[in-house]
Structure formats: C-alpha cells, structure tokens
Simulated assay, not measured.
Amino acid sequence: MHKQIATIGFYTFIEALRNRLIWAVILIALIGIGFSGFLNEIALTESRQIQLALMAAFFRFAAVFLLATFVVSSMLREFNDKGLELLLSLALPRAAYLLGKWSGFAALAILIALLFGTIISFLAPFSPVIWWTISLLFELWIIAAFSMLCVLTLSQMMGALSAVIGFYVLTRSISAIQLIGNDPVNIPSNSQQLISFLVNSLSAVLPHLDEFTRTDWLLYQSGSWSVLLALLLQAAMTLLLLGAASLFDFYRKNI
C-alpha cells in the first residue's frame, strides 16, 4: 500500500509540472516582486516594511488560490475522464488513492512554499522566514485536504472552489467573529446566547488560519518555535478530521 501511495503521489506531482503550474507560480512571484517594489518606491516612510508586508500577504493568498484551483481541477478532470474508475478497477484501496493524491498535492505545496519563502528571505531575517514558510506549508496542506473533500462531496468545479474560498475566509476570520459574538457590552438575550454558542462551537472545530503565516513574524520577529509547534498540532488535528471525512464520503460512493 505504501508503494501505491508513493506512485500516485509521484504522478500527481508530475501532472502539476506538466500542466505548467510551476510557471504560473513563477509568474505570480514576479508579479508580487514587481508590485511590492513599485510600492517601495512610492512609500514615504517604512518603505521596506510596506514592501515586505504586501509581498507576504500577496504570496500567501496566491499560494492558497493556485493550490486549491489545481487540486479541484485535477481531481475533477480525473473523475470526468474515467481515470478514477480505471484505477479502482485494479487492486487499489480507496484509502491508498486518497492518500496518494494528497501526498502529491503536499509535495507541490512544499515547492510553492519554498519558492515564496526564498523570495521573502531577501527582505526579512532568517528565523522569521523559516517560521513563515513552514506555517504557509501547514496552511497549504489544510487547504489541499479540504479541496479534496469538496471535490468528493460537490463534484462541480464552481461549487468546490466556492466552498474552499468560503472555508478559507471563515477560518481566517473566525477569531474576529468569535470576539464580536462574545461582546460583553451587548445586553445578553436568548438569541445572542444561541449565536454565541454556535460561534464558539464552530471555532472549536475549525482551524484558526488567522494564526498561521503571520506577517508580523516577518516585520517584528514576534514568532517562536513554540508557536510553530502549536500550529503543527492544530494542523495535524485538522488534517485527521478532513481525512476521516474524505474517506467516509469516498467509501460510501458507488463508483
């Protein structure tokens, strides 16, 4: 089974290279460098900090969007071309297929995170760049796993991508939503208590991606290895939940 997972992961990664996704990543990197350099020239004060902050934010969003788009399009193309049915007609467990696909996407995420982290390293100290790059990698792994779940559940390009974007926006803003929902200034009521309970329950299940890949690590060196370890545990728990949901949904399908 390990060999099957490695084989599927390898060819998934090769597919990304043949689809010229790396060229798209390089193009995004050049756009980010050019745009942040332009803002660096017109900024009156703290030009380097502004350039670094905008470049890091742009690279983070671009990495998530590119990876999610590739995961959704790759899996849907395989479904529509009946490639999945061919694979499952062999002696291949469905769990091996899902783990193999995710491992290929995870390898692609490593490449994207390393490329963007290398560019960031020219503007920021070494240790914060390491924290930022590793955290971006954790974030991309979560997005890849959720994108796979959306493909298995929705089976449509626009629906799956919309769900991934909604998930990303929600996980990036869940802490702010929780803070608003638990505002002690407002007079408590039954509806407010219900909303607060729902928000707190949602916050307990969802990953807090607003804590990942923070720009202030690069600007003020405010991160640490202990913070990164906490993010690793959060990412591992999220991946286990998403993997279990994907396996459950995949095994119940009649293919």
Rank of each mutant, 00 (worst) to 15 (best):
I22S: 13
F10I: 14
Q49A: 13
D216V: 15
A57E: 13
A16C: 10
Q49W: 09
E211F: 09
F13H: 08
A235H: 03
L241K: 06
G100N: 00
A204Y: 11
P188I: 05
T171H: 03
L27Y: 10
S173M: 11
G9T: 05
M157H: 13
F70D: 01
F122A: 15
S175D: 10
L179C: 12
R60F: 01
N19V: 00
N19Y: 06
L67W: 07
F79I: 10
V129M: 06
I50D: 01
G181F: 04
G166Q: 11
N200V: 08
F146A: 03
Q4W: 03
V64N: 07
I8T: 03
F10Q: 12
F146R: 05
G9Q: 03
D210K: 12
V164L: 04
Q178G: 14
L76A: 07
L114Q: 05
I28Y: 08
S135K: 07
I255S: 07
F248N: 14
M1W: 12
A53Y: 06
L233W: 11
F105K: 01
L241D: 01
T215V: 15
F250L: 10
F59Q: 00
A176M: 14
L218Q: 02
A230R: 14
F65D: 04
G104L: 02
Y11M: 07
V72I: 11
F248C: 13
F59C: 01
D210S: 14
L209T: 03
V151F: 04
S89I: 06
E46I: 03
F13D: 02
E41C: 08
G223R: 02
A57K: 12
I110T: 08
G166M: 14
F122E: 12
L67P: 01
A144L: 04
A24Q: 12
V72W: 06
L136W: 00
A244V: 08
I255W: 13
I26M: 15
R48C: 06
H2C: 02
P207M: 00
L114H: 05
R94V: 01
I112M: 04
W225I: 15
Q193V: 07
F35Y: 14
R60N: 06
F105Y: 13
G83S: 12
F126D: 12
I177T: 07
A113L: 05
D216T: 13
F65S: 06
F116T: 00
L233M: 14
F167P: 01
S226R: 12
A163R: 03
L87Q: 09
F126W: 15
E46A: 11
E211H: 15
I134W: 00
A230F: 14
A53I: 05
F248I: 12
